[in-house]
């Protein structure tokens, strides 16, 4: 039992030494520095929703025939309207990528 004595005494010393640290305004400083809490539920709906809408718009407006015409170097079939549709489709794809990256960042 004597073997145990120094261990018990040490435990006691360690516990006694763990004195309470007064707050001294620490809690107030923490509360002042708190950012607004994110609303994960809302974000988790908005971002995937935006991605789905972006995908739908891109699929609907994507000027497949004009892209194929460009690929075939058949410039006669490309019109101003189809170029603006192409620009809109590229913007939709960009938004889609942006939304996906934002979603990944929000979950990190």
């Amino acid at each position: 039992m004597n073997e145990q004595e120094p261990i018990d005494a040490l435990d006691l010393m360690l516990r006694e030494q763990d004195a309470y640290i007064d707050d001294h305004g620490f809690t107030r400083r923490v509360l002042t520095a708190l950012p607004r809490r994110r609303r994960p539920a809302l974000r988790s709906v908005i971002l995937p929703g935006a991605i789905v809408v972006g995908c739908a718009l891109a699929a609907w407006w994507f000027p497949t025939s004009e892209i194929l015409a460009v690929a075939r170097l058949d410039f006669s079939s490309i019109t101003g309207a189809s170029l603006s549709a192409l620009a809109a489709a590229l913007a939709a794809i960009g938004s889609l990528v942006w939304g996906a990256l934002a979603l990944v960042n929000s979950e990190c």
Partner: peptide, 20 residues
């Protein structure tokens, strides 16, 4: 409810052991 007072109570409870 994003109750900052409730969080403040948690901070008050654990600030001492954490800072130590």
């Amino acid at each position: 409810a994003e109750d900052q007072n409730a969080f403040g109570e948690l901070v008050r409870r654990y600030q001492s052991p954490l800072r130590a």
